[in-house]
């Protein structure tokens, strides 16, 4: 944990500097804490910033983001096909998501807490708002391999590096069938066909899991995003 402490201290120093320079704007969400130490650190940062940032009328524009439909039980009940359950263990996320754009099979989900994830026929192609985002990920032939019950696929992933440049990683992936499983989709449990995808790149190895229904549709999956976000699990209701 020393690395963590070190960065926090260095950040506090930098933030103090930032505030001196008039950076303004306290970081959002310093109250409701899950990680007490982190919350405290962010709380101090926010306090220092507020004190040094002073008072300021807003000279930038903003407006709240809304997710059409919302997440009320009525909305979900009215249109269950538009909702998903999403889980990211590394970020402590376990919540609902809604399809906010459907481009004929290419869907973008918005999580209730904000970030989005794009899927192409159930295969994760991009995320936004997670910090260490997946900029793009292709999967030529993956859906066919899943439906065929196995196969080899070459995939190309793009991330954004610290200099705002696209960095590319390639993966050799093997899809293997892993039998039939009962999968809990939150409000019901169904029996689905499980397929495992093992991907090997130069620096990273990951294992994706897909659960397909009888029509060859991906109903649930656990797919790799990036080194810090790790896996994004999502399923239809």
């Amino acid at each position: 944990m020393s690395a963590l402490n070190g960065r926090r201290l260095a950040f506090l120093a930098l933030l103090a500097l930032a505030a001196c320079g008039g950076a303004g704007g306290a970081p959002e969400g310093t109250a409701a804490a899950t990680g007490a130490a982190e919350a405290r650190a962010l709380g101090i940062i926010g306090g220092v910033q507020r004190a040094l940032g002073g008072l300021r009328s807003d000279d930038a524009v903003s407006a709240p983001r809304t997710i059409p439909g919302g997440f009320t039980p009525e909305a979900v009940a009215a249109e269950p096909g538009a909702y998903r359950l999403v889980q990211v263990n590394a970020l402590g996320l376990n919540e609902a998501a809604r399809v906010i754009q459907d481009n004929g099979g290419d869907e973008t989900l918005a999580l209730q807490s904000g970030p989005t994830a794009a899927y192409e026929s159930g295969i994760l192609t991009a995320t936004r708002g997670f910090g260490d985002d997946l900029m793009a990920f292709d999967a030529p032939g993956l859906l066919q391999a899943l439906r065929a019950g196995g196969g080899q696929v070459a995939r190309r992933m793009e991330l954004l590096d610290s200099q705002d440049q696209i960095s590319i990683a390639t993966f050799a992936c093997t899809v293997t069938a892993a039998g039939q499983e009962d999968v809990n989709l939150g409000i019901r449990t169904v029996s689905l066909r499980r397929l495992d995808e093992n991907c090997r790149g130069e620096r990273v190895i990951f294992d994706n899991i897909y659960w397909l229904d009888g029509e060859g549709r991906i109903v649930a999956s656990r797919q790799y995003v990036s080194p810090t976000v790790a896996y994004l699990r999502s399923n239809r209701l």
């Binding site: 709240p64 997710i67 970020l91 904000g114």
Partner: peptide
């Protein structure tokens, strides 16, 4: 919809760790 606090917190914590790794 603003990201919920715990997401930012977790992400920050991970960021701090990753930064530490870089500094190595």
């Amino acid at each position: 919809m603003a990201p919920r606090p715990h997401l930012l917190l977790a992400a920050s914590a991970a960021a701090l760790l990753a930064g530490g790794a870089l500094a190595q």
